[in-house]
């Protein structure tokens, strides 16, 4: 029986920097200063969180007014197992809270201690975060109470223009059966291609034939020698690079394959040419795993260049 397809974690993380514009900027500045501002639309309603544009007239909203740091729960839920990034790391309630003086409700967390304390209509007040920077999380959470907590003072006066939002997500990336076979062959130091039953072209790595939309089936061994069809010299440094610039990234048509793969060509870098013959340089066999990284790079073989006509159709 075939081994199950390979899978591995894929984590993505970035601290997004969001510029706020005039309305959200004033709202965030207010939070930092221990105030909550709502936007007043043409119909007189006060929206918290503020709207940037009037939903009826479509005009930009310019009037912001203070509302109270106390309010009423209009809907709620309870979570026993908070997820990463949520406001509290113990059981809490997410709730829609209409602040006194506002006509709309704000979504935030309520630190009620127990589900039984949550109810629609309950009175809550803001618990301010100790450190405030101008962010929705300057409100640490809400807590059951009818009385406002004393607004914490602030010494700052510069307006808040930006917020930073870290986003961290974890995925499991899953390969296909074909790709898994290819990767397992790589772990044994072999390169594997598969031939499309329709167009007869050999794909490395194996995949559904993109031209015919059918799985490729017939396995074809591929040599770890090939021809540079085209290339570029990377002179620019950027995040995540494995080599120091300058280095050569080439399209390499492996012998026996009908589609080139991208890879590094190292050695004689200044002299890399279209048509140059190259061979894979494998890492030490004991380090091989199910990854294309088993091949460190390609090196020139010194053979005569392949004639342009022999790889012209692969450009």
């Amino acid at each position: 029986m075939a081994a199950p397809p390979l899978s591995a974690p894929l984590d993505i993380a970035f601290d997004y920097t969001r510029s706020l514009g005039p309305v959200l900027g004033r709202f965030m500045t207010g939070l930092r200063d221990g105030r909550v501002l709502g936007s007043r639309t043409a119909d007189g309603r006060v929206h918290v969180p503020p709207l940037e544009y009037d939903p009826v007239t479509h005009a930009p909203v310019t009037e912001l007014v203070d509302v109270r740091p106390t309010g009423t729960v209009t809907s709620w839920t309870w979570t026993d197992r908070p997820l990463a990034g949520q406001p509290l790391d113990r059981p809490f309630g997410f709730a829609l809270i209409r602040l006194d003086g506002a006509d709309t409700a704000l979504l935030h967390a309520v630190d009620a201690g127990a589900r039984e304390r949550m109810h629609t209509g309950m009175r809550v007040r803001i618990r301010w975060a100790a450190e405030r920077v101008g962010h929705i999380r300057d409100i640490e959470c809400f807590e059951p109470s009818a009385e406002p907590a004393g607004p914490p003072g602030t010494g700052k006066s510069d307006p808040v223009m930006m917020i930073t939002t870290p986003i961290r997500l974890s995925y499991t990336h899953t390969t296909s059966a074909d790709e898994s076979r290819y990767l397992r062959a790589l772990a044994e130091g072999r390169l594997l291609g598969q031939r499309c039953p329709v167009c007869r072209k050999v794909y490395v790595p194996p995949r559904v034939c993109p031209a015919d939309g059918v799985p490729t089936e017939e396995e074809v061994p591929i040599r770890d020698h090939g021809t540079v069809t085209t290339f570029c010299v990377v002179n620019v440094p950027f995040a995540g690079q494995r080599l120091d610039p300058p280095y050569v990234v080439a399209q390499i048509l492996l012998d026996g394959a009908d589609i080139p793969i991208p890879h590094f060509v190292v050695g004689d870098a200044g002299d890399v040419r279209m048509g140059m013959r190259v061979a894979a340089v494998w890492r030490e066999p004991e380090s091989w795993t199910t990854t294309p990284e088993n091949i460190a790079h390609f090196r020139p073989t010194g053979e005569p260049d392949a004639p342009y006509e022999s790889f012209e159709e692969h450009l």
Partner: peptide
């Protein structure tokens, strides 16, 4: 909303529960 809601990570089940 990426400014005032998403930074609290309200998950889709909690939102539906509200």
């Amino acid at each position: 909303d990426p400014y005032v809601v998403a930074p609290l990570w309200p998950d889709s089940v909690s939102v539906a529960a509200l």
